[in-house]
Design a protein around this nucleic acid. Structure first.
Length: 646
DNA sequence: AACCAAAAGTTTTTT
DNA sequence: ACTTTTGGTT
């Protein structure tokens, strides 16, 4: 590296960050506390490697979201030059997809497989339950959603089904045999229809690497340098994948914070990161403890907050940013007064010159924000919501995507059912017959186009056939395909939904996203692997990113981000910590870490809100106490305020 | 076989 | 509040 560049890096990094950036051979673990410049360290390191002549394509940066990877590469490019854009970056899942796209055949799997998302997996399991469990299923047999959960946990934790059932769903053990059989059905169905769910992407990649050493070496040799962000949220399978990738050259750097591990429901274990040196014996460990984000009073509170964890690795973050403003716990009289308190407060902040996009409202679960959303809409305050119900999961989007999926995978039963059931006079039985017919003809889409109109000229079915005939006859650009599908779908939309104009606008947004693609397949896999993170009803993509909109987000979706002012709503016992997590110390610790993540997002102002007496339908209890995590804190760490707005 | 309306049963977080 | 199941009608 040129001396001048090195000098510059030295002046822009603290000594530990500098160490990490210039660490050379051998494994490196960076424990990076909240706001300690983790992204900065990764970015500078990437730039340093490229500057010293490592080919960007040989650097692999695995992150938690695609957005995080893009952002880091963008910053690295600004730091050095555009070569940094060619660094291979993305999520474990998208990496797995790229590899499997090429090598799935080595596992006996179709190379043109379709990735199915969680709702898809659930409806597939739903079909299998119906097929296997005929007759009324009395009692408490798990629902498809629960089954999908059970299967997914088994996969992510790499444990046998019995263990999951015994540990987490003991009340289902009487159905153990049926559940096992259904899992086998599920595996077989995915194989037959060339489906992979999110978990398959990871497990099959690992399987490939462990069963076929020569392929493993070919994959691993593509990348001479590895970096993994948010390592505390990786699970066993991901850790194994990392191990295999870095096994031979050991040039691996992982970054994370055990206190911010919040994905145990996906098999992540906060101890994983501390076990990293066992996986890579000569690991050098560096710890970043200076916080550059938050003012002292906020950091004092968050340090005390995480102290309450039953199990943790000691760490004391420090800050040198003074402030007069301590965090505040606000009691409001009701849910709606909580919402109105926020409206008042952000208006005041706005008058002080704080832009709305520097303010965030965070919550434990998507639905906690419903009342606030209504209130904001009424007050004409623009906002974006992240987390909760996803744009991609809304019915009209899935309907249109199903028409596209059939173009790339014509035997996809889920998509056939979805689109056929939209047609009048066609129910499950007819759909079943039509699908079986297409599969037996083995002529792909042509099988449907050539099918005899045995349904005595069902006009809806004829329209669908015309659509597919046209799409098969011409070599159309994805946007043209989208336009034709929309033309076909519009009458159906109008007929089914009274809010069809709004939904139509969503679909037009979808067409905008399509413009960037030359082929349907990468579009479809991107939509499943990296769906726009915004919740339903939000515009995105074309919108000006600088738009001054208030941010509403689940804590999970807020990971890695920061704002001038952060409101944490529903900081009540029963909500946050969630009522469902209060059974075990481990679950409570995870809720605490979640609260820690939420609180450490704030730079200047941090407010907890506790809406007085609220009846909780789930528990049948009246909630009134503030979150134990906050209530237990020493009094001098925050102010308390009662704000009843009627 | 498909469709519709009423009743019953569930509730987190995400790739 | 929402999804899934049910029972009855076309």
């Amino acid at each position: 590296m040129t001396p001048s560049c090195r000098e510059r890096f030295r002046s822009e990094l603290n000594s530990v960050q500098y160490e990490a950036v210039f660490h050379d051979e051998g494994p490196l673990l960076v424990i990076a506390g909240a706001g300690s410049g983790k992204t900065r360290t990764l970015t500078y390191r990437a730039a340093r490697l490229v500057e010293e002549g490592v080919a960007p394509e040989q650097i692999l940066l695995l992150t938690f979201t695609r957005k995080a990877a893009d952002e880091m590469l963008r910053r690295a490019a600004r730091l050095l030059d555009n070569r940094c854009r060619h660094i291979a970056g993305g999520t474990f899942h998208s990496f797995a997809y790229t590899v499997l796209k090429r090598y799935a055949a080595a596992l006996g799997f179709a190379n043109n497989f379709t990735i199915i998302d969680r709702p898809d997996a659930e409806s597939l399991i739903g079909m299998l339950i119906k097929a296997r469990m005929s007759g009324p299923q009395r009692g408490a047999f798990p629902r498809k959603k629960t089954l999908a959960d059970i299967f997914s946990r088994a996969a992510n934790k790499n444990l046998p089904l019995e263990d999951i059932l015994y540990e987490e769903y003991p009340h289902f053990t009487p159905y153990s045999d049926d559940i096992h059989a259904l899992q086998a059905d599920y595996v077989a169905a995915k194989f037959d229809q060339a489906f992979m769910d999110y978990d398959d992407l990871l497990t099959k990649l690992l399987q490939l690497m462990e069963d076929q050493p020569d392929i493993k070496n070919r994959i691993a040799d593509q990348f001479s340098h590895l970096m993994v962000d948010e390592y505390q949220d990786t699970n066993y399978i991901q850790a194994r994948i990392v191990y295999h990738l870095a096994d031979r050259h050991q040039r691996i750097m992982v970054v994370g914070d055990d206190s911010q591990s919040i994905y145990s429901f996906r098999g992540a274990n906060f101890r994983n990161i501390m076990d990293f040196p066992d996986l890579f014996p000569d690991t050098r460990v560096l710890t970043l403890e200076e916080n550059y984000r938050s003012v002292v009073p906020i950091l004092d509170l968050t340090n005390q907050l995480i102290e309450q964890a039953v199990e943790k690795y000691p760490k004391q973050l420090f800050s040198s940013r003074p402030s007069e403003n301590p965090p505040c716990l606000v009691h409001t009289g009701s849910e709606n007064s909580q919402s109105r308190y926020i409206v008042d407060k952000i208006r005041a902040l706005g008058r002080d010159g704080i832009p709305y996009n520097e303010i965030a409202v965070l919550f434990r679960a998507g639905f906690h924000a419903f009342d606030l959303e209504v209130e904001l809409a009424r007050e004409g305050i623009a906002f974006v919501k992240y987390g909760g119900f996803k744009f991609m999961e809304s019915a009209h989007i899935k309907d249109v995507l199903a028409h596209m999926r059939i173009q790339t995978n014509p035997y996809d039963r889920l998509s056939w059912f979805r689109i056929l059931l939209l047609i009048n006079k066609i129910g499950p039985k007819s759909a079943q017959r039509i699908h079986a017919d297409i599969v037996s003809q083995a002529k792909g889409l042509q099988g449907f186009i050539d099918m005899k109109p045995s349904q005595k000229g069902n006009p809806g079915l004829e329209r669908l056939r015309d659509l597919f005939r046209e799409m098969a006859a011409f070599d159309l650009h994805p946007v043209q395909i989208g336009e034709r599908i929309l033309g076909y779908y519009h009458p159906i939309l109008k007929d089914r939904y009274d809010d069809h104009p709004k939904r139509m606008r969503d679909l037009e947004q979808l067409l905008v996203l399509l413009e960037k693609y030359e082929h349907l397949e990468p579009f479809l896999s991107d939509m499943t692997l990296e769906p726009p993170n915004v919740a339903v009803g939000n515009t995105f993509g074309t919108g000006n990113p600088q738009e001054d909109r208030l941010v509403l987000s689940t804590v999970h979706s807020a990971k890695g981000l920061e704002w001038h002012t952060v409101f944490i709503i529903w900081a009540m016992d029963g909500r946050f910590p969630s009522f469902m997590a209060s059974e075990s110390a481990e679950q409570l610790d995870e809720e605490l870490r979640l609260m820690y993540v939420a609180a450490t997002r704030a730079r200047e102002n941090l407010l907890f809100l506790c809406p007085g007496q609220v009846f909780d339908r789930v528990s049948g209890m009246i909630l009134s106490r503030p979150s134990r995590f906050i209530d237990n804190l020493p009094e001098d760490l925050m102010t308390r305020q009662a704000a009843d707005i009627w």
